[in-house]
Design a protein around this nucleic acid. Structure first.
Lengths: 163, 163
DNA sequence: CACAGCGGGTTGTGATTCCAAACCCACTCG
DNA sequence: CGAGTGGGTTTGGAATCACAACCCGCTGTG
């Protein structure tokens, strides 16, 4: 279930968000994924639609490929030309992008420049539910269960645990 | 509803995700927000728990303050000392961080280092539902409704629209 | 008082990354 | 032949990042 390149030990609290950002947190990475989700697969389209400098885009796409998020497929040899497709891991980034869009719609723009329509019918208005209990998820109902030895919500406890 | 500093026109497709990333996309920004969400409000705790270099953390916190995501509250004068609190906009980043955690749990780590418990009871297992129609949100049911003049899913159309 | 320690930074010095623009190469089209 | 397109690479300079050292105002402690 993990991408090909595992995330090396990071500084700070062990956390999947940090691990995720290590992979997709560099500039332009998520915007490139967004464009591929929108159906744009070619370098030029990605460059134009994200606004990323071409060299940065090249670097990001290579890194995303190595991380198992995009796949490069040749659609022509001579000259060699590639399309960028998302892997399952890449498609799984859609909720992250939707969450960013939702936040941006509310806090960073005046009018949403893009609206997601649900079944061509109505603008999607997503809420999170807990599949286990069936109730809506509210921040106040969530508590941290930290599984990493030597860590608490407040930070790192004593020294290294007894070996 | 928008933060104090509006996002300037960005290159590329007008998109709330891009606008959001302009504000919280720099390194360490979201991890700092994560720590404040976890209840850590002091510089030292943020530095230790994120692993961010202190100068970078200072820069991020200032930028987040200016963007209206964190608030600095003095808890001592002489020497001046501050706690960092989230504004409503900051608290609204929780779903973004949860989405990153969910992705990281699945694709970037072996075992989740942190599990969110729902009502102290069970691990939260979030799914998105559409508040309007009550059905679960699947990517395949979503279509783009682009409101920006001169843009389509594939990219920018002709030139600037007639003024 | 001297000295240690902590919280919250600031400064200095390099290493990386980022950006814009230019360039290049293989091909296609007129 | 010349212009255009797709997919980059190169170049030179700006911004960001990282790590360590330093500083300042306090609070102990002896």
């Amino acid at each position: 279930m993990s991408p090909t390149t595992p995330v090396p030990p990071l500084p700070g609290r062990p956390c999947s968000a940090a691990a995720a950002l290590h992979v997709v947190g560099e500039k332009w990475a998520l915007l490139a994924v967004r464009e591929i989700l929108y159906g744009n697969r070619r370098f030029d389209a990605l460059a134009r639609n994200t606004g990323a400098p071409r060299d940065r885009l090249t670097a990001r796409l290579r890194a995303l490929e190595e991380a198992g998020i995009v796949e490069r497929r040749a659609y022509s040899e001579r000259p060699p030309r590639y399309e960028y497709h998302l892997t399952e891991a890449g498609r799984d980034l859609a909720p992250v992008i939707r969450a960013l869009v939702a936040w941006g719609d509310k806090w960073a723009v005046e009018e949403p420049p893009v609206v997601l329509r649900h079944r061509g019918d109505h603008p999607v208005d997503a809420v999170e539910y807990c599949r286990t209990c069936g109730d809506e998820v509210h921040d106040r109902d969530l508590a941290l269960d930290i599984r990493s030895e030597g860590w608490t919500p407040a930070g790192r406890t004593g020294a290294t645990p007894p070996g």
